[in-house]
Nucleic acid binder design. Structure first.
Lengths: 190, 190
DNA sequence: TCATGCATGTAAGAGGTTACATGATTCG
DNA sequence: CGAATCATGTAACCTCTTACATGCATGA
């Protein structure tokens, strides 16, 4: 009974879909070549906390994408900087990712976990955490407002409304969070 | 020259700190024994999208915690249900985790990525995504309001203000998101 | 010359997701 | 009796984080 070998399951059968991390890098590369370092900075500057990204991930995805022809590494310039350029295949992969729509996203807020489980925490702990959080959100909001101000003052290039819209989201959420903290009942806020 | 062997790096030197996922399970178990299934449901009900958790993770953490004496599995009851009870060591591990404070949290919103990279998307794609998102947030808000209503109508047990506060956060954020969408400039909203 | 910032990368492990597999119970 | 729901779990894989290692360039 020499049966046929079990077939290897075929992965990535058609197009080897890229993940959201790679897609975000390709998105930024539409504006021109950038190094891994630049990409980390760009993500941080334009998306703040709403798109977390570490340099390890970035270098890994860049290497993967270079292997697959989605980007091409350039010659190293100043210091060891190696700029990557998006290719037509890269643009196609990005468009394909975009066509699938944004998925659900991931949110994990330990702060909310603290609040939810508040009755099992030592009294005072939750309060001090909320005080810290208030300070943090206030600082964040201030920074966002300063950024908007700087973009508004026609400093150099015209502002992309999409980038501004993302900044507005940050402002909106920071304000909402502050209001929420301030309206928490006294049993919780102390 | 028989030098000493390289020392094995010692991990978890002191107390083998638990992760936030395990901590959340221990938190819920403070209210009494729960099965893995219950825990998934509890997290979903009380924290909604702000604490994502899959059953694979839950069963894995429960097994790990049982091995380490933080919880004890009970006898299987109805169906295959196996309720876990928190131990004193479990309560200690939870308190220790809490004392470290909530960390930064993780947020990854592909929707914001779409907005930020909007100028590189096919015209119309971003608009339809925003329309869908508006519908989704409206539905979410409705559900939250219904939940608050149900909790407010003294249905059975008195409501824990902490759980209510978490629900308020959901309401606040959903409203803020809706306002943000509605105020997006016409170049983006269409 | 020394600290700081720019810049790239590797290794290892922890955490999270998806698909699969199985079976009990309830209700219509 | 069949469908839906309750309930547990494994395997494989992907993704993300942390720590480590290296070196160039700039400017005080």
């Amino acid at each position: 009974m020499a049966g046929p070998a079990l077939p290897e399951p075929v992965r990535h059968a058609v197009t080897s879909e890229i993940n959201a991390t790679a897609a975000s890098l390709l998105g930024f590369l539409h504006d021109g070549p950038l190094t891994g370092w630049d990409l980390v900075a760009r993500a941080e500057q334009t998306m703040g906390p709403f798109w977390s990204l570490t340099k390890s991930q970035v270098y890994r995805e860049l290497a993967y994408m270079a292997e697959n022809g989605l980007v091409t590494p350039g010659v190293t310039g100043r210091r060891e900087a190696r700029p990557y350029t998006i290719t037509d295949a890269g643009r196609a992969a990005f468009a394909e990712w975009a066509a699938r729509g944004p998925g659900e996203g991931t949110i994990r807020l330990p702060l909310l976990l603290f609040v939810t489980l508040g009755r099992h925490l030592e009294p005072g702990l939750l309060r001090s955490v909320l005080v810290e959080q208030r300070t943090h959100q206030t600082k964040l909001l201030k920074e966002y407002l300063a950024m908007r101000q700087a973009l508004g003052d026609g400093e150099g290039d015209p502002v992309d409304p999409h980038v501004l819209a993302t900044l507005e989201y940050g402002i909106t959420v920071a304000r909402a969070t502050l209001r929420w903290i301030d309206r928490l009942p006294p049993e919780i806020r102390g």
